[in-house]
Each structure stands twice: as structure tokens, then as C-alpha cells.
């Protein structure tokens, strides 16, 4: 009887653990505080370059080839051009738009890699470890000098 109870308890515990380890992408945050994420990344020292102030949405759309209608809100900061470092945080109106944004970030990474390969080759490893993460209608793209730390900080937000 004791053994049976112990096995049952273990099974319940295991089931609970499996539920808790579900796909993060399915657990969309209620709201992502973009400014707080931006500040946390800066304070975490993940960037080595100066990131310029956030762009207006029309510049963001032009930069990434996006339709402005696909962007509910965003926070996008690019470097001076000396490096490939970049932060782009989006909220899309729906999952389909979020998918298009994520695709645009993939394209961005590929284009930047090609650009910097002969220009500043030291930037290519950063781009190879670029973070593109989607959660619900949120998409986050980060190319940083310290991508591991950037990922850890992002974990607390998305």
C-alpha cells in the first residue's frame, strides 16, 4: 500500500513537472514592458556599442521591410554602425503578423552577416548567436556583445 502510494505520488509529481515544462511560446506574457527590458539589457552590460534612441515606427518599417500594420508597438534601437549590435522588440496585432516580423528578423541577421563579413568580421560571431524569440504576439531580436547574458535577462521578460 505504502509502495503504491509512493508510486502514485511520484507519478503526480512527474505529471506536474511535465506541465510546468511546457513550450514557453505557448505561455504569452500578459504584457511585455519593453522599456524595462531595454533598461535591463543596458544595465546588464550586454552591449559594447552605443545604441541610438528608439526609431519611430515608420523608420522601423523601412529598416526591416515591414508593413506598419503588422506593428502594434515596438522599441527598436540600432548601434552607431560600428557594430552589428541591435535590439528590436515588437508587439504584433496577431500571431500571423508576429510570424512575419520574426521572418524579417531572420532576414535582417542574414543581411547583416553578409554586410559585416568583409567589413568588420569580428561582428559575425555576435550575429551567429543572435536571439530571435517569439512569445504570443511578441517578438524580440537581440544582437549583443554578450548574447548569453542577454538571453538570461530576456528569460525574465519573455
Amino acid at each position: 500500500m505504502k509502495k503504491t502510494l509512493a508510486v502514485l505520488a511520484a507519478l503526480v509529481l512527474l505529471a506536474g513537472l511535465l506541465c510546468a515544462c511546457g513550450d514557453k511560446a505557448e505561455e504569452a506574457p500578459a504584457e511585455l514592458d519593453m522599456a524595462a527590458l531595454d533598461a535591463a539589457l543596458e544595465d546588464g552590460g550586454v552591449f559594447s556599442d552605443i545604441l541610438n534612441p528608439p526609431f519611430e515606427v515608420d523608420v522601423v518599417a523601412m529598416l526591416y521591410g515591414l508593413d506598419e500594420a503588422d506593428i502594434t508597438t515596438c522599441l527598436v534601437r540600432c548601434s552607431t554602425g560600428a557594430t552589428a549590435e541591435e535590439l528590436a522588440v515588437f508587439e504584433a496585432p496577431d500571431a500571423a503578423a508576429a510570424e512575419r516580423i520574426a521572418g524579417a528578423m531572420e532576414t535582417r541577421v542574414a543581411a547583416q552577416t553578409e554586410s559585416f563579413r568583409n567589413y568588420v568580421p569580428e561582428e559575425v560571431p555576435k550575429l551567429e548567436k543572435a536571439i530571435i524569440r517569439t512569445s504570443g504576439n511578441y517578438v524580440v531580436y537581440i544582437t549583443a556583445a554578450d548574447p548569453d547574458e542577454a538571453g538570461k535577462i530576456l528569460d525574465a521578460y519573455l
Binding site: 552605443i50 541610438n52 534612441p53 548601434s79 552607431t80 554602425g81 560600428a82 557594430t83
Partner: peptide
């Protein structure tokens, strides 16, 4: 206004 001495801030 620069990190690499060539490019500059917004």
C-alpha cells in the same frame, strides 16, 4: 559621440 572613431551617434 563615437565608439570606433569613425561612426557617430544619432
Amino acid at each position: 559621440v563615437t565608439t570606433d572613431g569613425v561612426h557617430f551617434t544619432a
